[in-house]
Design a protein around this nucleic acid. Structure first.
Lengths: 227, 227
DNA sequence: TGTACATCAGTGAACGCGCGTTCACTGATGTAC
DNA sequence: TGTACATCAGTGAACGCGCGTTCACTGATGTAC
């Protein structure tokens, strides 16, 4: 769960657990969850497969740790997008900007690191830590916060607040999946971009009642798709 | 791609290709795409693995056929929901009803047949037939038709029509995926239901400009979640 | 400060598994004459 | 109508692979006295 860790110094490794997780994440990066095996991770670290069993109960345990690691990477990618945002404007504007940046971060991560994304959402036993905490500390929590802010600022009516985070996340997650494995994978870049923009527009229009001023709309679209 | 096919009658099978596809689909049903192997399919049919190579170029070919088969099953499930709909009301009402029924069919299929769903969207080489036709003959086409109708009937403004099908499908697909493998899997049935309803509301509100009359809203929510 | 010994963290060999795929083959079918 | 023969659709044995996991082991570490 931390950085690469020292290369081994003699018989004992020193930080084998973290080294294995790091190796597992690199395997996930290049080949997705199916590439994460105890043998391959041990090989990458330069250690016998058996040694891994000192630190993990088995394959499932290692994969779970890798999953958690991928989720963290994803969370970081979204934070990066958030950090680039200007602070100007009223609360609604700032919150909508953040919503757009989250979507952008999510989709950019999927495009840049499909293997990590697939692993983060791999089927099977959940994460090592209690489920809720892992998810709520990650990407999902950020969406919840932004929607709370949108409600507090008066953009999102209170009666529409419940479950709104699910709608938002579903839309962006579905967009990502359909691009990765579904029929949207064949779209050219331009169409892909327009699909993302339209989905963002539909979601924002579906959340708030009122329309957006033109300049705000333009700014948001640029955040969600631009650069 | 057709029905079970006759049980073998002697040395020659008669319809081995279809029998293998059927077996592959059953494997997919119970264990997802990873369970679809040439050996297992041959075993199920009662034939040597080698025999499969008379009808498929290899594992990937069989899996592709299974994928196509799963997509068809999904399409049928959605058609079933469409067929149960009343025909009363104006064009907008009928089209929105159909939109709700498609979402319902999609999500019900995912819940009832997760293995088939996973296989339909399995990663890897596309389908046997040309990509577009397979998808556009399937679930996606139905969404496109309904949205065209919503535009023609005046509910969906023309300038919001492009890519709207992607937004709609992304939302429902994301909902399905997050329930299957994501953090939404832990929701109780009641919350799950509300999440689906809210997502439908957000999408409909995001597509059309105007609000829905109360009775229509109620009817649609019942279609999307009810029974 | 030195030493015996428990504990920890690795090694190396081996197991059984199911897989995709290939080979030379044989049984069944159908067609030309 | 019968027969030789090409063709088709299977069989059976075998290959090599990478995997998860277990076993008895050994090298390194640290702690009690």
């Amino acid at each position: 769960v931390s950085s690469p860790g020292p290369v081994r110094t003699g018989y004992h490794h020193g930080d084998l657990r973290n080294a294995l997780i790091h190796a597992a994440a690199e395997l996930a990066q290049s080949g997705g969850p199916d590439s994460v095996t105890i043998r391959a991770a041990a090989r990458a670290v330069g250690v016998t497969p058996t040694a891994a069993y000192r630190h993990f109960t088995g394959h499932e345990d290692l994969l779970g740790a890798a999953k958690e690691c991928c989720l963290e990477r994803m969370s970081e990618a979204m934070d990066t997008e958030l950090a680039r945002l200007p602070e100007s404007g009223d609360r609604v504007r700032r919150a909508l900007r953040r919503l757009a940046a989250l979507g952008r971060g999510y989709l950019a991560f999927v495009a840049a690191e499909p293997g990590l994304f697939r692993t983060a959402f791999a089927q099977g036993l959940p994460l090592v830590s209690p489920v809720e905490s892992a998810w709520e500390a990650g990407p999902f929590l950020k969406v919840i916060e932004v929607l709370d802010e949108l409600m507090a600022a008066g953009f999102l009516p209170a009666e529409r607040r419940p479950m709104a985070e699910v709608s938002v996340w579903s839309a962006v997650h579905g967009l990502a999946m359909l691009h990765l494995d579904g029929p949207l994978g064949d779209l050219d870049d331009e169409s892909r971009q327009r699909a993302i923009e339209r989905t963002f527009e539909v979601i924002v229009a579906g959340l708030g009642c009122r329309g957006l001023p033109d300049d705000l709309h333009t700014e948001l679209i640029e955040i969600v798709g631009g650069r």
